[in-house]
Amino acid sequence: MEGDIAQMGKFIGAGLATIGLGGAGIGVGHIAGNFLAGALRNPSAAPGQMANLFVGIAFAEALGIFSFLIALLLLFAV
């Protein structure tokens, strides 16, 4: 395995791809934080918006999961 530049490139690429998960973290945190801020201002409206909260988190998270998938593909499939 030593000296295998392609292998090295794979690992480096996979590591770089995981940076994308940070973006998902930022997005999910942003949504959850804003939801909490809104919910504290108007607690009575909060339960009705739980569905929207989860849908938003799901959309934000999906993009992070894509980069996780890229990492996996680089590691195992290429």
Partner: peptide, 13 residues
């Protein structure tokens, strides 16, 4: 794509 990868990726991860 996102619908399936989200579920599978979360569980797998």
């Amino acid at each position: 794509l996102s619908h399936s990868i989200r579920l599978g990726g979360n569980v797998m991860a």
